[in-house]
């Protein structure tokens, strides 16, 4: 398999009244063609910021990529001019967002919002685009597309709107789809349908997906590989099945333990104590150390390296020092 998207040593800084704050540090990622990569973490772990930075959707006056590189098929896209980058947005990489209720423009019809994407990136007449919109809506499982194209977002349910967002995102026939918490705002039954839909589209179109979520259940459902992020860094990555069976990092272990199980419902749900620290208060050593149940002396003093372990797992934890594969 070939590397489609590569993120190398990415660091992102946000400006603040007290000077720049590094919210993302040393993030390394690869996305292979046809693969689904999950990025998991709590709120504030930096997963959405990382994803938005790929699409260059961070507020320009606030955030800046201060280090590292993002490459699409080996070509750096960080230094492209805005007008060059626009050719990638939507046509090579596209994105769907968490809130389908607000992500669509309330004053335009569904049809025109989707065809805008087609007209922007593919050489098609308005008429062809219109026909294409109907096909896309059918592809995302909307039963009466001829009616839906003429309706406005407020007339549709959340699940429908998310399907429309997906239709819009694939309208430019992208190679990478970034889905930022695509099911978080939806009902559980609708969540399952939307995940199923993403799976189907990926299979049929051979797209790669980056799925951002805080829900390990969603990762298990959809992803091949997973990156666990904590406080702006990747702490563990590897194949989903391996990490599920044998999580190495104490944070990953905690996340997996806090998924509700139905085996013993009387048991209290496990929680990781404390919160993700704010970016200007990241601890000096391991950033997870203050919340870690397996904390050692070294953890608060020295930042652990990313250690390559067996079965393609990489883990940023002092527990595995000297255990390289």
């Amino acid at each position: 398999m070939t590397n489609l998207l590569t993120i190398k040593q990415l660091a992102i800084e946000f400006s603040s009244p007290t000077g720049p704050v590094r919210v993302i540090e040393n993030v390394n990622l690869t996305l292979e063609a046809g693969e689904t990569l999950g990025i998991v973490g709590e709120s504030g772990s930096g997963k959405s910021v990382t994803a938005s930075s790929i699409m260059r959707l961070l507020p320009k006056d606030l955030a800046e990529i201060s280090d590292g590189d993002i490459q699409l098929k080996g070509q750096s896209i960080v230094k492209l001019s805005d007008s060059e980058f626009r050719k990638i947005r939507g046509s090579k990489i596209s994105m769907i967002f968490q809130e389908p209720m607000t992500a669509l423009n309330p004053v335009f019809k569904i049809g025109s919002q989707i065809s805008e994407m087609i007209l922007q990136h593919r050489k098609k007449s308005k008429k062809e685009a219109k026909a294409e919109v109907i096909n896309l809506l059918r592809e995302v499982g909307i039963s009466a597309p001829e009616q839906i194209v003429n309706s406005y977002p407020h007339q549709l349910s959340g699940g429908m709107r998310q399907r429309i967002m997906i239709a819009m995102a694939i309208a430019g026939d992208p190679e990478v789809l970034i889905a930022d918490e695509p099911t978080t705002a939806l009902d559980v039954t609708i969540q399952a349908q939307v995940l199923e839909l993403l799976k189907k589209i990926q299979r049929e179109r051979g797209m790669s997906i980056i799925l951002i979520t805080h829900d390990f259940g969603v990762v298990a459902e959809l992803c091949d590989r997973v990156c666990v992020m904590y406080a702006g860094q990747i702490v563990e990555q590897g194949k989903v099945s391996t990490i599920f069976n044998n999580p190495r990092h104490p944070y990953t272990q905690g996340l997996l333990k806090s998924i509700p199980q139905f085996v013993n419902p009387s048991e209290e749900l496990y929680t990781i104590k404390g919160q993700v620290p704010a970016p200007n208060q990241f601890p000096k050593g391991c950033r997870f150390a203050p919340r870690c149940p397996m904390k050692m002396e070294i953890c608060e003093l020295e930042e652990p390296e990313m250690i390559e372990l067996k079965e393609g797992i990489a883990c940023k934890c002092h527990l595995y020092r000297g255990e390289t594969d």
């Binding site: 959707l57 626009r86 947005r89 992500a103 805008e116 994407m117 922007q120």
Partner: peptide, 13 residues
Amino acid sequence: QDFIRTARSKGIR
């Protein structure tokens, strides 16, 4: 608003 971000993500000017 979110829909402005969506519009930007489409690659339009």
